[in-house]
Design a protein around this nucleic acid. Structure first.
Length: 409
DNA sequence: AAACATAGCAACCGCCCGGCA
DNA sequence: GTGCCGGGCGGTTGCTATGTT
């Protein structure tokens, strides 16, 4: 038996709000407040609306100090960097943008930013639609729309910056250049852990202070541990919490872990990785994503994959989840993968909205330290609760080894 | 000018979670 | 401890405006 409806569906009005309804609702709330009970509110003021509908109307439209449209470049930065980091947690993102509602941001992302970042504007798509071709286990013609699809497709970038869109149990490949690089925020944050002259600690401009980061982490449920390791210089970053979140999502079968094997046992700062595997966590039934990964694997033999690999005192590798093929950097983030051209060690940076003169960009990356290798080396079982601890431990280990390994965060 | 396609966005739906009895 | 209820949230839908052919 389902839940009782919150209101009498037959007797409530649906659809667009009239100015009269808006005036009634606004006037009442401004005078009396919501009274803490949205369900009862419409009856009090004689509105034939569901309480939830009233709440949404107030929060998304009538509430004072709301801004509509006209997102600034800075707001774009924040939205994109946070989306890349935490995904579609619109309320959290909205909390960082005064005057913006989660619904606004969600719509803005879905209708504009996503396409902007994917380079999916109309002109491009018109040209590129002709290049759409099935490339997976489904030979049927695909005419899917990325933007209007009723079920959200999975989108990852394959090798050569091609775009893989998985939808309805098939994968289609769209040859197009990824637009992420031109929009990735690349602002360094202070007090970052294990900072070297060459590494890249990149974070959205709105999170350049530790307090904001900590507050957000707390809001996100991040936890911090002290396992005896001296990391007094360690300052949690947004990514710490995101790593934690990523573990959570992996437990639900949504995450991707990239692990690497190397046939080079020397403790060098960089090693060529000749084999790579994609490890999927969860119940293994996430078929669509798996197909995409298999799709990618088939191309690895024509790529030179490199990874920044650090080592600890036991010569165990500490994968840094940084992949480099002959076309540039790739990294995975949830069900999306982003790609950009990058020269390892390059300190060239481009700002959000800029393109690099040299064609090399440094892009925002997340740590993914708890690969299966690392977990085995540490003798610990992957746990969503130890993500931050592992991260901190890794940092401490690398510090103690006085390693010059670049830590890409 | 008409038909069609696409973009943009307000609003709805249904699930989840926390508070409370 | 359990179940109910309301609020919050993310995903989806439907309508209108705009652009394209």
């Amino acid at each position: 038996m389902g839940r009782a409806p919150c209101c009498d569906k037959a007797n409530v009005k649906k659809g667009p709000w009239s100015p009269e309804e808006d005036a009634k609702l606004k006037s009442y709330i401004e005078q009396h407040g919501t009274g803490g009970n949205w369900i009862a509110l419409p009856q009090k003021i004689g509105l034939k609306r569901c309480g939830k509908s009233c709440r949404l109307r107030w929060l998304n439209y009538l509430r004072p100090n709301l801004k509509h449209g006209g997102f600034s470049e800075e707001e774009d930065n924040i939205i994109c960097s946070l989306y890349v980091s935490i995904g579609s947690r619109w309320s959290v993102i909205a909390a960082q943008l005064p005057g913006r509602t989660d619904n606004d941001i969600k719509n803005y992302w879905n209708t504009r930013l996503k396409k902007k970042l994917l380079g999916n504007n109309r002109n491009r798509r018109n040209k590129e639609q002709q290049q759409f071709q099935p490339c997976s286990n489904n030979n049927q013609e695909e005419t899917t729309s990325i933007n209007r699809g009723r079920s959200s497709p999975s989108v990852i970038f394959g090798h050569d910056d091609s775009l893989l869109v998985h939808e309805n149990n098939s994968t289609i490949q769209q040859q197009q250049q990824c637009y992420w690089p031109h929009f990735m925020p690349v602002l360094p944050i202070p007090n970052v852990p294990y900072s070297t002259s060459n590494n890249h600690f990149l974070l959205g401009s709105s999170f350049n202070d530790q307090d904001s980061i900590k507050k957000l982490l707390i809001k996100l449920g991040g936890r911090f541990y002290n396992n005896g390791v001296d990391y007094h210089n360690y300052h949690p970053t947004l990514d710490d919490g995101l790593n934690h979140l990523l573990h959570q999502s992996q437990g639900q079968g949504q995450g991707i872990i990239t692990t690497t094997h190397s046939n080079n046992n020397n403790s060098t700062q960089q090693e060529v990785v000749y084999h790579q595997e994609q490890v999927q966590f969860g119940d293994g039934n996430n078929g669509g994503l798996h197909d995409e990964l298999v799709q990618r694997q088939g191309n690895f033999n024509i790529e030179i994959e490199e990874e920044m690999v650090g080592t600890n005192t036991n010569n165990n590798f500490i994968p840094q989840r940084l992949l480099l093929n002959n076309n540039g950097l790739e990294f995975l983030c949830g069900d999306m993968a982003f790609s950009d051209k990058i020269i390892l060690g390059s300190t060239n940076r481009v700002n959000w909205g800029e393109s690099s003169n040299s064609g090399n960009s440094v892009i925002y990356q997340q740590p993914l330290l708890a690969s299966s290798n690392y977990q085995q080396d540490q003798g610990v079982r992957p746990s969503e609760e130890c993500a931050l601890q592992e991260y901190s431990t890794t940092i401490a280990t690398m510090r103690s080894n006085n390693s010059n390994t670049m830590l890409h965060v």
